[in-house]
């Protein structure tokens, strides 16, 4: 969680270079949209703690926390975000399209798109007869997509070893969940497909860990798919540059007050975890991230002609 947070803060800093005082998305070392995951770390950490490199994960347009939790190569990922040659795809994909086959991770800029591939990857693992599973992270907005309902049904009838994890940060860009979703908890929709559905309140990594543990072990032992909805918060806008006028007054301040990272740090300290251990974890995360960002900044840019490569393999 701390590595992810520090990574996002470092990316944010680099992203804003050249974009102030006048915000121009094309300027600076990182162009394009930037969706940061600050605040949503418990979803990624709590689920991915159960995963092995051979487990398959798809994430959303807001992918960094999940990628880091799944073990994606941090330097190659940072270089991709900076559009550099040693990036995961050599700068062809950027921050919304991170693919690392070494740890079976991918993400997409299209809402709900990763659900089908995750269930297919799960079926492939089922057919091979090993115990690997697939996880598809989606936002709460994706639960209103056709892909969501089609995938839940198909996963259920094929008993696929897949877990669908909804990161409910309560906004689809500017539209609140309560204004666009017919029911309060999307996890209730699992019952329509005869599978387990659990709502995890409180943006709590331990509670996510427990719920994911049940779902992942059920999938591993052939018990079929599950749906988990995690109540979480994004502490930043939908994307960098978002004026966030849709938020009620005082919401950001309130959310900052329940930032999961200091809360969890206190919980660990209260449980008797040595503060030196926590500081060492912080220092390690900072060092890894600093090295990755430095690597990305100094890495060579791709050749323009590289754009014509890798359309096919």
């Amino acid at each position: 969680m701390v590595k992810s947070r520090y990574f996002e803060e470092s990316v944010k800093q680099a992203y804003l270079e050249g974009k102030q005082p006048l915000f121009n998305m094309a300027k600076g070392p990182i162009p394009g949209e930037m969706h940061l995951s600050n605040g949503q770390e418990p979803c990624a950490a709590g689920v991915c703690a159960h995963l092995r490199p051979g487990d398959f994960v798809t994430a959303t347009h807001r992918p960094h926390h999940v990628a880091i939790a799944k073990g994606v190569d941090l330097k190659a990922m940072a270089a991709e975000i900076f559009g550099k040659m040693p990036g995961l795809s050599g700068g062809r994909g950027g921050h919304m399209h991170l693919f690392d086959p070494d740890v079976n991770f991918s993400c997409s800029g299209i809402i709900g798109q990763g659900m089908g591939p995750a269930l297919g990857a799960a079926v492939a693992r089922q057919m091979r007869g090993d115990e690997h599973v697939a996880i598809s992270f989606i936002g709460e907005g994706a639960a209103n997509q056709g892909a969501f309902h089609e995938s839940l049904n198909l996963a259920a009838i094929w008993n696929a070893p897949v877990v669908f994890v909804i990161e409910d940060n309560s906004y689809g860009i500017s539209v609140a969940k309560k204004d666009c979703t017919a029911i309060e908890k999307n996890s209730d929709r699992a019952s329509a497909y005869g599978i387990s559905g659990v709502f995890v309140p409180g943006n709590d990594p331990d509670a996510v860990y427990d719920a994911a543990g049940d779902a992942v072990s059920r999938a591993r032992r052939g018990g079929g798919p599950s749906l988990i909805e995690v109540e979480t918060y994004r502490l930043e806008g939908h994307f960098m540059g978002d004026a966030e006028q849709y938020r009620p007054k005082g919401e950001v301040e309130r959310l900052m007050g329940i930032d999961p990272i200091p809360i969890y740090r206190r919980r660990l300290a209260d449980a008797g975890v040595d503060s030196a251990l926590l500081e060492a974890a912080d220092a390690r995360a900072k060092k890894n991230v600093d090295e990755a960002i430095q690597f990305a900044r100094t890495a060579p840019a791709p050749e323009a002609s590289d754009a014509f490569e890798k359309v096919f393999t």
Binding site: T58, G116, A122, A124
Partner: peptide, 13 residues
């Protein structure tokens, strides 16, 4: 949408 998406996940696997 689901089964063509699933096929892509199978192909990647």
């Amino acid at each position: 949408t689901a089964f063509i998406g699933a096929a892509v996940g199978m192909a990647a696997s």
